[in-house]
Simulated scan of single mutants.
Amino acid sequence: AAVEEDVHLVGLSVLSGSHMNLVPEVLDGLRAAGLGDVPVVVGGIIPPADADRLAALGVAAVFTPKDYGLTEIMRGMVNIVRTANGLAGA
């Protein structure tokens, strides 16, 4: 769907605890489809150590239940897209 829709960002909500299995698969799939430059954000109940590992794999942001300010979350995602497209500070 990301390829067909020409997305600017992929968001994953993983509440099953399988984020360390699912997210790398999605990242690999995006890279295989030529979309390795599309930022990925993840939300769910994700321990800090796992969030660090996801960031090391290339995830642009991790949102957990402590992140509940919708305006701040949306602003963060817009900034991620802007940065990914060379528009930060523009």
Rank of each mutant, 00 (worst) to 15 (best):
G89T: 03
V10C: 06
G89K: 05
G43L: 11
Y68A: 09
E72G: 06
I73W: 02
S13V: 11
V10E: 02
A32V: 07
L30H: 09
P48M: 04
E4V: 09
K66Q: 15
H8T: 09
I80K: 03
V7G: 03
V3I: 04
V62K: 00
P48T: 05
G58E: 06
T83Y: 05
T71N: 11
A60Q: 10
A2G: 15
L54Y: 07
V10A: 07
A51K: 09
E72Y: 10
L22V: 13
V81L: 03
I46G: 00
A90Y: 05
P24K: 04
G76H: 08
L54T: 12
G29K: 07
L15N: 03
T83D: 14
V42W: 08
A32Y: 03
A61C: 00
D28T: 12
A33I: 00
G34S: 11
V59G: 01
P48D: 12
L9K: 13
A84M: 11
V10I: 11
I45W: 07
N21G: 05
V42I: 10
N85T: 08
A55F: 01
A88F: 06
G86F: 04
M20L: 15
M74V: 15
A88Y: 05
N21D: 14
T71V: 15
S18G: 10
L35K: 15
T64H: 04
N21K: 10
L27A: 13
S13Q: 13
G43K: 12
G69H: 14
G36C: 01
L54G: 10
G43S: 14
V81R: 05
G17Q: 07
S16E: 13
V59H: 01
A49I: 09
A55D: 07
L70S: 12
I73N: 04
R53H: 12
V78M: 05
V62N: 02
A49T: 13
L70V: 15
V81F: 01
G58V: 13
S13P: 00
G36P: 04
E72M: 13
V26H: 03
L12W: 02
S13L: 11
S18N: 14
V62G: 02
I45Y: 03
T64A: 02
V40N: 10
A61G: 02
A1Q: 06
L57F: 06
K66N: 14
N21S: 09
F63Y: 15
L57G: 02
E4I: 05
K66H: 13
L27H: 10
E25M: 10
D6I: 00
P47H: 07
L57T: 02
D37M: 12
V26L: 02
A90K: 11
A90F: 02
D52C: 01
P39E: 03
L9M: 02
L35Q: 15
E4F: 05
L35N: 08
L12V: 11
S16N: 14
L22R: 04
A56F: 02
